[in-house]
Design a protein around this nucleic acid. Structure first.
Lengths: 187, 187
DNA sequence: ACCTGAACACCGTTCAAGT
DNA sequence: ACCTGAACACCGTTCAAGT
């Protein structure tokens, strides 16, 4: 005898994401999610293969949001200003969604990783801007340099790895300015 | 009636480290460690407060080893060559000890973190070299820029985040060369 | 003084049984 | 068709009991 569904994938993913931000990845248990959507843990397996797939869906959600945010941050037409804006927006996103940021860049089980296409979409704006600055033959290397730096910086910042005092904001500004300068092809 | 100890902290930490490299952090269970040192899991609590402290001790061990390795890599007297060497050695260390690298830079529970002094020791060589290049008033910012980039780069490399093809070695060389150039104060 | 089995409070996941 | 309790195989950790 059929029974109406009491929850949905969207509701599960939304619940998972808010638990993630509030309690961290370790707090994202199947029981916690189930309790938020008003069901028992085993019922989640009707819509989701398991915890790894839930993490995968949340990570995709985050990647889409980040891609959209970055899209809107490179609009001045000046690649230097755009790249600076992208770095600032990237850092702001990480600071306001620290657990989501970790989800995108920490190593995760294969089944939990972001879809490669979404990763590419999030990288597209940066790749285009870096290309405008470094020239097409160095676009990929330049983009990787900037992403590595930006991601390493905010990861260390979020992880509390900057323990020698000093002005962290100033270090970020210093870094992006040097990178922009050094990536620019002579002109 | 006293009984001779059947294991020791050193043995436990050594066992933990080799399990870490072989099975990853998630494979580093108290039972796995206990079985390697020839004891039952509850006995470990005679020498160690718990799993977090074991991770802490392993992370300290790794930090010491990395600090020593970096110490030996900045010996040419030329800060540019030294910084390049430091970057190469840092990356080589991460590639040959991927799980150990994650342990140093992933976010860990407070009780599992590396001692701040060891962190400072590992950073000292880099700070000195960056200072020689960027000048004393920018040493900290320059060092943070290089560390953020190097760490972000190898984290993404180890995590399989470079999914757009291209030559990853070339991107690393490109990055360190641009950073060295842009960090150098005019001279 | 050290080691152990048993126990407790958690996980994720499976599955037969209910509606 | 969906939901559930019970169960299983794991965790980390505690503790009384053995030697």
């Amino acid at each position: 005898m059929p029974t109406p569904a009491r929850t949905s994938i969207d509701e599960i993913v939304d619940a998972g994401r808010s638990i993630l931000e509030a309690e961290g990845l370790e707090g994202l248990t199947m029981q916690a999610v189930a309790s938020v959507v008003g069901v028992r843990a085993p019922s989640l397996y009707k819509r989701i293969r398991g915890r790894d797939q839930l993490i995968h869906l949340i990570a995709n959600d985050v990647a889409r949001e980040l891609a959209n945010t970055l899209d809107g941050a490179a609009t001045t037409g000046d690649p230097r200003a755009d790249l600076r804006g992208l770095a600032m927006v990237f850092r702001a996103f990480a600071v306001s969604h620290p657990e989501a940021h970790r989800l995108l860049f920490d190593r995760l089980p294969e089944a939990a990783r972001v879809d490669p296409e979404l990763n590419a979409r999030a990288a597209a704006t940066l790749l285009r801007t870096a290309g405008a600055l470094a020239g097409p033959e160095h676009a990929l290397e330049a983009a990787r340099t900037v992403v590595a730096w930006a991601n390493g910086f905010v990861s260390m910042e979020l992880g509390g790895s900057f323990r020698l005092g000093g002005d962290v904001d100033a270090a970020f500004t210093y870094g992006i300015d040097r990178l922009i300068q050094s990536i620019s092809s002579g002109d």
